[in-house]
Write a protein that binds this DNA or RNA. Structure first.
Length: 268
DNA sequence: CCGTTTGTTCTGCC
DNA sequence: GGGCAGAACAAACG
């Protein structure tokens, strides 16, 4: 379940491998892998094009071509990696044949999708503010919370508002800022809002530094796994003592997701 | 069969 | 009609 730090990690690993490569062919193994474009058109528009850059927007890995953009969403179980040969692994959704390697999209549950946009703005405007970008200020967060009456966890998971946070890092950030996941966003004080702002930034930056968390069995091509799992303070700690006050961590449903919090540190 | 996962899409309520 | 909550959905697995 890759979130912002995991997608960022994938991008940083793939970028040197992909920039400068030419797309020779594209093969969709899983018929529904293309999200917003037909196979024939996609083939026509990308074959022979060069990869100029690779970056991240929200939870998308974006290949920048000289005539448009290929955003790839991993959803829950997607993996993107390069390989010298045609892959023999199971659950391959798609393969890009490049100048001197293969780009493999492997996805056990097949929720992941590949998209096509010829205009950056059309893709970009679908997503909210980047929590590590310049627009994510203390003021912005405070107004975004104050101006709505939504459960704060649901608000933070809403990709149209903030782009890139998922279940794990929302729970971590709310614990760190001592905010109950179900509190209505307009009832969050400016002190807590500022604390949340800081928590989100620090947690995401640290998770990136650790190459992310959430790939349970994930290793990169060079065998390095994401190790932020060892830094988690509250997620997946149901029944264990809070690391701040030793109260037993509870698990509830919030925004339809399993949600971990400390009932003493995070009061409504 | 059920629960779990993400983000989109829908339905229904106020 | 907007804002919101919650359910359904796409798929696979244990």
């Amino acid at each position: 379940m890759p979130e912002l730090p995991e997608v960022e990690t994938v991008v940083r690993h793939l970028k040197p491998d992909l920039v400068g490569q030419k797309i020779l062919s594209f093969q969709s193994i899983w018929p529904k892998v293309l999200g917003n474009v037909h196979k024939k058109y996609f083939n026509d528009v990308i074959v022979g094009r060069n990869i100029l850059d690779v970056n991240r927007r929200a939870k998308f890995i974006v290949l920048h071509l000289d005539n448009g953009f290929i955003p790839i969403h991993l959803r829950m179980t997607g993996r993107l990696y390069t390989n010298d040969n045609i892959p023999t692994a199971k659950h391959i959704s798609a393969v890009f044949r490049l100048s001197d390697k293969m780009l493999i999209f492997q996805d056990t549950r097949k929720f992941g999708r590949v998209y096509w946009y010829d205009q950056w703005a059309e893709f970009d405007q679908k997503h909210g503010v980047e929590p590590l970008g310049e627009l994510f200020t203390k003021n912005w967060l405070q107004q975004s919370l104050q101006g709505r009456k939504r459960q704060v966890k649901a608000l933070l998971l809403d990709q149209h508002i903030i782009a890139g946070l998922g279940n794990i890092y929302v729970d971590e950030a709310l614990w760190s800022a001592r905010i109950h996941p179900l509190i209505s966003s307009n009832n969050i004080s400016s002190v807590k809002s500022n604390r949340l702002h800081e928590s989100i930034k620090v947690i995401l930056e640290q998770a990136i530094a650790y190459n992310g968390t959430t790939f349970i069995n994930f290793t990169f091509q060079d065998g390095v796994p994401g190790s932020y799992r060892n830094q988690l303070q509250v997620f997946d700690r149901k029944g264990l003592p809070c690391k701040r006050c030793e109260t037993v961590i509870k698990k509830i449903k919030a925004a339809g997701r399993g949600t971990y919090f400390c009932p003493r540190c995070q009061k409504i």
